[in-house]
Amino acid sequence: MSREIAFVFNGNKMNMAIEDHWTLLHLIREELGYTGTKEGCGSGECGACTVIVDGNAVNSCLYLAAEIDGKELMTIEGLASPDGTLHPIQKAFVENGGIQCGFCSPGMIISAKALLDENPNANEEEIKEAIAGNLCRCTGYVQIVDSIKSVSGHEAQEPHVVAFRSEEGDRGD
């Protein structure tokens, strides 16, 4: 069955006809054509499809599009300013090595956004809790946690890597 819904998508009011059986992920990717939100598993186990609905992070693969009616939806595309300036969280991920293959990154960043909106001073434990539902196979999460920490009001730790011996010293030309 079709129905008309109205919602706010990344700050813009939208009216559109949807099908009852569409997931929010389908609406975003296939109908609206915004592919930043990823499908990693389709069953709420990986978090790649995370979006923010009325301030809460949800898995859009398990959320019916019909339920977005009257609500506010934010996807990864809504984070950076229209002029392209990155959101501080995005900037932190870029600068701290929080991104490798990048497939989990939009969902990861959105989860961080939902967390910091609610708790701007989240500590490491709270950060890990907030992104526990966002699986990443590349980074081992360390630099992701560092990225979020760097913008959470809690200072990021010093980088762990220190060169502790150089044998031939000056090389390179």
Partner: peptide, 25 residues
């Protein structure tokens, strides 16, 4: 065949890791 029962680690499983790097050129 799913992430529920194939258990790759989550952010909450992260352990304290140090990664000293030795440069031998």
């Amino acid at each position: 065949p799913n992430f529920r029962d194939y258990k790759i680690l989550t952010a909450k499983d992260v352990v304290p890791i140090e990664a000293p790097v030795l440069e031998t050129y």
